[in-house]
């Protein structure tokens, strides 16, 4: 297979970036998108050019590190998949493929396609946890959890923190990510004592990081590789309303 790539190249956070064209040939349909970029990079290196910097690690859709906006979509055209799970068979021979980094004020570009998602960590640090020190736990089965809730909590917990929701959202909103963690904890008995504090603190941090607001377009849910549901955002709204308006 043969492709024309238009890749965003930017030396560092403050540099001016631009799209650069690359032609690539001899691509196997069973290659993953990242393997295709590997092949391109190998060529660039051997030509003495600077290879394209991008984030990746597990290459099996679980670490949340890979992050490319491909052909106008976060993680590319494959539904419910990360960039590393995208295979070239998804494209047509001869396609022109745009490759850009996640774009959001809260995710500054490190280089080329790699961005800094530290904002997500800081949101978690603000309240995305249960305050339990090592050794303070009671026996695990002292805390039964209704299966349906456990399942829903697990659905929400499946978020890999990739940031595709932010990238896909026209407002660069982090609401889906935040709602997933708030929901997981709100659904579990372990999360109850800090429920209001958590919702308030995480939303405050989310806003401080400069993410946009949610206007319920649903783009995040549609592009989320882990299919985190919009119902979580509704739950986050409830949690927040409850925490700030109703709770004493």
């Amino acid at each position: 297979m043969k492709f024309k790539l238009k890749v965003w190249r930017q030396a560092n956070q403050n540099a001016q970036g631009k799209l650069v064209d690359y032609d690539i040939d001899g691509i196997n349909a069973d290659m993953s998108f990242l393997e295709m970029v590997d092949v391109l990079n190998d060529k660039l290196i051997k030509k003495g050019e600077d290879p394209i910097a991008f984030d990746h690690d597990c290459r099996e859709g679980i670490c949340g590190m890979c992050s490319m906006y491909i052909s106008g979509r976060a993680h590319g055209p494959q539904h419910a998949a990360t960039t590393c799970q995208l295979y070239m068979r998804k494209f047509k021979d001869g396609d022109t493929i745009y490759v850009e980094p996640w774009r959001a004020r809260a995710f500054p570009i490190v280089k080329d396609l790699a961005v800094d998602r530290g904002a997500f960590d800081r949101i978690i640090a603000a309240g995305g946890f249960v305050s339990v020190n090592t050794g303070q736990a009671q026996d695990a089965n002292n805390l039964p959890v209704e299966k349906a809730f456990a399942e829903k909590a697990m659905d929400a917990a499946a978020c890999i923190g990739c940031g595709a929701c932010v990238a896909a959202c026209k407002n660069a909103s982090a609401m889906l990510f935040v709602s997933a963690k708030v929901s997981q904890m709100a659904l579990l008995p372990q999360g109850q004592p800090e429920r209001t504090r958590r919702a308030l603190a995480m939303v405050a941090q989310m806003d401080a990081e400069g993410f946009g607001n949610c206007t319920n377009t649903g783009a995040c849910e549609a592009e989320c590789p882990k299919e985190i549901s919009l119902t979580n955002i509704a739950r986050l709204n409830r949690e927040y309303i409850n925490a700030s308006v109703i709770a004493e």
């Binding site: 946890f129 050794g135 736990a137 009671q138 695990a140 805390l143 039964p144 299966k147 904890m185 372990q190």
Partner: peptide, 22 residues
């Protein structure tokens, strides 16, 4: 044995049975 206790206390959503136990 303590590990499971600790992780559950942190909110790790382990699989559960209908009775709500692990």
């Amino acid at each position: 044995v303590n590990i499971i206790d600790q992780c559950v206390a942190q909110g790790v959503p382990f699989a559960r049975e209908y009775g709500g136990l692990l």
